[in-house]
């Protein structure tokens, strides 16, 4: 158990780069990514763990960055949407209209990327459980469902 107070300097491994930031112990990873590191792809949809717009990957696992403190993440590899380049899930979201306004999209894509990584084969119950962490108000989820299927196909292709 660490004990911290005042302003502390931390080093986060974000998208493969070491990023230094002066933070308060109470600062969430979400706020530090957005406000200290300029990585605004993760969104503040609720800051209460309910919407998933802030989802990032910690060591490859989806995490709601509004629910973790930045100081807890020093030993983990953080992947934000800005760190995902030409990932099949991104292509699939673009091609299948897995977004409209795009506000939920970074979180949705990171969660979906982790999902297809952990479960290359589709399974409705698993997909549902997994994807219900993220809310989308625009698409009615049709485009997202199609994007998920298309991404799995792309990944399975030799």
């Amino acid at each position: 158990m660490k004990e911290l107070s005042g302003i502390v300097e931390i080093v986060l491994r974000v998208n493969g780069e070491d990023r230094r930031a002066a933070v308060r112990p109470g600062d969430t990873l979400l706020r530090v990514l957005r406000e200290k590191l300029g990585l605004t792809g993760a969104k503040c949809g609720c800051e209460n763990g309910d919407c998933g717009a802030c989802t990032v990957l910690l060591d490859g696992k989806p995490v709601k960055s509004c629910m973790v403190l930045a100081v807890e993440c020093e030993d983990a590899a953080v992947t934000t949407i800005e760190g995902l380049r030409d990932h099949p899930v991104q292509q699939a979201f673009a091609e299948e209209n897995g977004f409209q306004c795009g506000f939920c999209t970074p979180g949705m894509i990171l969660n979906a990327a982790a999902l297809v990584d952990a479960h290359p084969e589709p399974d409705d119950a698993v997909d549902r459980e997994w994807m219900q962490s993220n809310l989308c108000r625009c698409t009615g989820y049709e485009g997202i469902r199609n994007a998920l299927a298309a991404a799995r196909k792309k990944l399975a292709a030799p």
Binding site: G41, E82, Q90, F93, A94, G102, F103, T105
Partner: peptide, 21 residues
Amino acid sequence: PIRTDAPAKVRGTLRYTDDLI
């Protein structure tokens, strides 16, 4: 056709109002 805002949206680089920090 694929929307022109697709690349920025799927890569999270589109700046919404509160992203103007």
